[in-house]
Design a protein around this nucleic acid. Structure first.
Length: 870
RNA sequence: GCCGGGGUGGUGGAAUUGGUAGACACGCCAGACUCAAAAUCUGGUUCCCGCAAGGGAGUGCCGGUUCAAGUCCGGCCCUCGGUACCA
């Protein structure tokens, strides 16, 4: 504890606003974070997923960017040439919603948001090279996206086909899945329909095999993300089988279970399947059913959860295994977009087929069973195992295991010309067309015959008009002759522009490469080869599949275009857990309005449990909607601005890193910031007082003893732990806790012996160095106050003094039969026998072993002794 | 439905390779300082029994492996994220 007489002069209070302004001015003036390619130094590209400019930063952004900044600044202290860029994922749906609601052009709304949020990021002191800033809605960015798409068209990797969308029949517009609530359009309240329209696709499936193979080599990625990507790609080996239809084209299905062919008792096709369409023409009941199948949105989760319904088409197909005739049904759970749009149903050995068969009284026939002869009842439940099974009731294919039956039946079908082995992927081609305004225009021109022509490179970019007014909800460029009317490249004939725009995932699939070469007059240049791949990528776990898979695909496509020379874009990935928060809403006039927690008063019972909530403005109840991911649409974001204003950026940064480990979900509550603020104020006082005293001797005495030795040991143990936590484990919360423990110990240290102040100084210097990545402004100011000439941002990460870690004695715990019964101290070099003797000699151990025989003594050196007695 | 996470005190979380459950904080309680408040400092704080020493229980639920299980295995429950047009 510091004694009062040591205060030789009053020290200024911690003023975060001033400290942070001065540090930021220093970094700006020095150009600290502006970097260039330097082949002499090891590079480190540290990247956070770029934000959507929704209006204000929310707490999830602060978490994400603080993690990135801590890693970037730490790597910088290790001497690397660190690039940290920042930009804006600026196209997207919310800008159009704002436009429709507030009569403001999406561009204007977006640019205003970018300005505001950029100022917020700068206020937080992140070490970005702002000279590389980009916004995906700027023509100098999307020009190259358009150019690359025309290259993909030339290579046949971009193509057009029919695909289903959610159609709002009242608004006469396409809806995103998010805009469909309980089957109805979120504005109109109308029942949404599925509708097929022509759309552009990228052939990501051409890369399925490579994307899958490389998942195994992404050592720097979390296993959970790798598993999710593997499952998403969903490679399967199966057989395509033709079922003859008397008087018609054969019905082709794909199955991964040809071993169950003899159990196929009915077929099911999608509502959009030609067979269903044809049958609907003749039968009004089928037509009604097919029509009914359109009354659903396109989301897989919805489709899988809805009631499985079907109708017989009055058609029969011939099972090529046994020649039996089986009925063909139309079913709402079979989708045209998957496989062939038709399946063979084996109710005995597939859960969904089983449920459907029970519902409609279809035959359930067992064709596989346990290989030990155990009887199973497939009428009661499906039996789906591939292991320890044998085929039965399968003619000459009976008595085989899964692999043998698969091969024998597949070979038989191939010989008969009725089937072929096929590798299939769950992964589907990437639909990139959006029928919306605020996105990158797809650079295609149609001639009078509907022919497709990529826009010539010299005519790019196809500019999106920014000065627009929304009439209703539809994209203003869809009926804007000035945008649409053009000439066909080459022929000079009148042509019409594509009015669809790109999925915003296209924008975010290559931005990390463009950061490397700002201003380039090509898509990428040589500079990209220096910086890529990204060494550390940090972003939300919600992007585990879509964004991260699209970006991987795009990178490989860029590689094949000769633009980059590595295979994967992100060497190491840190998936940040989401910051989630309570939602509150009301349903009025068929639309749902969400309210922010700041607009709501929560009512609790005696135990603190939430019983309900009312809107502060009118005192009327709102629905407590449950905890969800923070999002603009759910209006459950937390505004970090108040905390910046009140406590400063460093306190907020420290709190965010201390609150939980980065990969864990964080349920936001406003409490706890106070502790971070208290720690920084206390640190400020301690260091300021120390700095106000005369400087201690520069070098430490050759040996320090007693309390000073213990303190030095604690210091170097802490350096070891913090280096491991920050550099390897990404556990910033425990790193901070370790530093707090060290500071608590320093607070108890009475610096009175000669050399003590030197040790105290060693602790303070190293604490500031370790905290510099997390609270860089405060570290900068205090480092300066201690009289260091070089700014802390230019200093190296501390090193562990191994000699300081040495201990003479260790305390270990003693258990009797696994229960803690005492503690003993042993010499650091104690033998197993020493441990055993010390443990058995312990008074409490004696009491618990009295009258028993000691059977075994387990010694874990340095940790514990377990005495097993009975 | 399917795929991937998570569940530990009043709260956030710690326990890194199977070895002391609850580090470090928040909150709360008591005390010091103060006319008072704020700030600061000291002590206490998983639950139950006990003056204490100490004992018992305890990491979502049920069962198992082990000298030893929050951690490993089997089966459940709840919850969050993704589910291809939110980003």
């Amino acid at each position: 504890m510091s004694t009062p007489e040591r205060i030789t002069s009053p020290v200024p209070d911690y003023d975060p606003e001033r400290v942070e302004r001065e540090a930021q001015q220093y970094w700006d003036a020095q150009g600290t974070f502006e970097v260039s390619e330097d082949p002499e130094r090891e590079k480190f590209y540290c990247l956070c997923m770029l934000p959507y400019p929704s209006g204000r930063l929310h707490i999830g952004h602060v978490r994400n960017y603080t993690i990135g900044d801590v890693i970037g600044r730490y790597q910088r202290m290790l001497g690397k040439n660190v690039l940290q860029p920042m930009g804006w994922d600026a196209f997207g749906l919310p800008a159009e919603n704002a436009a429709i609601q507030n009569q403001v052009a999406p561009a204007q709304w977006t640019y205003a948001n970018i300005d505001y949020m950029k100022a917020q990021l700068q206020r937080l002191g992140f070490g970005y090279d702002w000279s590389r800033e980009l916004a995906t809605c700027r023509p100098d960015y999307y020009r190259w996206e358009q150019w690359f798409f025309t290259r993909l068209m030339d290579k046949g990797l971009a193509y057009k086909k029919m695909a289903v969308v959610n159609w709002d029949p009242v608004e006469q517009t396409v809806l995103a899945n998010e805009q469909v609530i309980e089957g109805r359009g979120w504005r109109s309240g109308a029942l949404v329909e599925r509708r097929e329209i022509p759309q552009w696709f990228l052939k990501i499936t051409d890369y399925a095999e490579e994307l899958l193979a490389w998942v195994d080599r992404l050592d720097g990625w979390p296993d959970s993300v790798r598993t999710m990507q593997r499952n998403w790609i969903g490679r399967s080996e199966g057989v395509e089988i033709d079922f003859e239809i008397p008087g018609g084209e054969p019905l082709r299905v794909y199955t991964t279970r040809p071993d169950t062919l003899f159990g196929a008792t009915y077929m099911a096709v999608a509502a959009e399947h030609p067979l269903a369409k044809h049958a609907a023409q003749a039968d009004p009941a089928i037509a009604r059913f097919v029509e009914e199948c359109k009354r659903t949105n396109t989301a897989e989760a919805e489709l899988e959860r809805m009631e499985k319904l079907g109708m017989p088409l009055g058609i029969e197909a011939i099972n090529p295994g046994n020649g039996e005739r089986v009925p063909v049904w139309v079913a709402n759970f079979v989708l045209m977009g998957y496989g062939t749009g038709a399946i063979m149903s084996v109710p005995a050995h597939d859960e969904r087929d089983h449920a459907f068969a029970l519902k409609y009284g279809l035959e359930i026939r067992q064709v596989i069973g346990p290989d030990d002869g155990t009887q199973i009842d497939v009428q009661a439940a499906s039996w789906t195992s591939k292991d320890a099974m044998l085929t039965v009731n399968s003619g000459r294919f009976s008595g085989l295991d899964h692999r043998a039956a698969f091969d024998a039946i597949a070979t038989h079908l191939e010989q008969q010309g009725k089937g072929e082995r096929r590798v299939n992927y769950r992964l589907r081609d990437w639909g990139v067309s959006r029928q919306r305004y605020w996105g990158c225009p797809i650079p295609v021109i149609y001639d009078a015959d509907g022919g497709q022509h990529p826009v010539a490179a010299e005519d790019l970019p196809v500019l999106l008009p920014e000065d627009v007014e929304f009439q209703g909800v539809n994209s203003p460029i869809k009926d804007d002759p000035a945008f649409i009317e053009t000439v066909v490249p080459g022929s000079g004939e009148p042509g019409r522009r594509e009015t669809d725009t790109f999925d915003t995932f296209v924008d975010s699939s290559w931005y990390y490469a463009r950061y490397c070469c700002p201003g380039a007059e090509t898509m990428l240049d040589e500079r990209a080869r220096y910086w890529l791949p990204v060494d550390q990528y940090i972003g939300g776990i919600e992007h585990a599949v879509l964004h991260l898979l699209y970006a991987r695909f795009y990178y490989k496509a860029m590689r094949d275009e000769g633009l980059v020379d590595s295979d994967e874009p992100f060497t190491n990935l840190l998936t940040q857990g989401m910051v989630v928060a309570e939602t509150y809403y009301r349903d009025e006039d068929g639309r749902r309005t969400f309210y922010n927690h700041t607009e709501v008063d929560v009512e609790r019972d005696d135990k603190g449990a939430v019983t309900g909530a009312v809107l502060s403005a009118d005192g009327q109840p709102v629905v407590v909607g449950g905890i969800e991911k923070m999002s603009k649409s759910k209006n459950n974001g937390v505004d970090p601005q108040q905390m910046i204003d009140r406590y400063g950026a460093d306190t907020l940064r420290l709190f965010m890193m201390f609150a939980s480990p980065p990969d864990q979900m964080l349920e936001w509550k406003d409490a706890g910031v106070e502790g971070a603020s208290r720690f920084l104020r206390s640190l400020w006082r301690t260091v300021s007082r120390h700095a106000a005293d005369p400087a201690p001797a520069a070098s430490r005495p050759p040996s320090v003893e007693g309390a000073a030795r213990d303190l030095r040991r604690k210091l170097h143990e802490t350096i070891a732990k913090v280096s491991d936590d920050v550099g390897r484990r990404y556990k910033f919360n425990t790193a901070i806790a370790a530093i707090m423990e060290l500071m608590n110990e320093l607070g108890r240290f009475d610096a009175s012996a000669p050399g003590d102040r030197t040790v105290e100084r060693e602790v303070i210097d190293n604490v500031l160095l370790m905290l510099a990545p997390i609270v860089p402004h405060l570290a900068h100011a205090l480092w300066q106050a201690l009289g260091h000439e070089r700014a802390i941002v230019e200093c190296a990460w501390p090193e562990v003094d191994e000699a300081a870690l040495v201990r003479d004695h260790l305390e270990v715990v003693v258990q009797v039969n696994g229960k803690l019964r005492g503690r003993v101290t042993v010499a650091a070099d104690a033998s197993q026998e020493d441990y055993r003797a010390a443990a058995i000699a312990d008074e409490n151990v004696q009491r618990h072993t009295a009258g028993k025989t000691i059977r075994k003594v387990i010694v874990v050196p340095g940790k514990l002794v377990n005495v097993v007695a009975a």
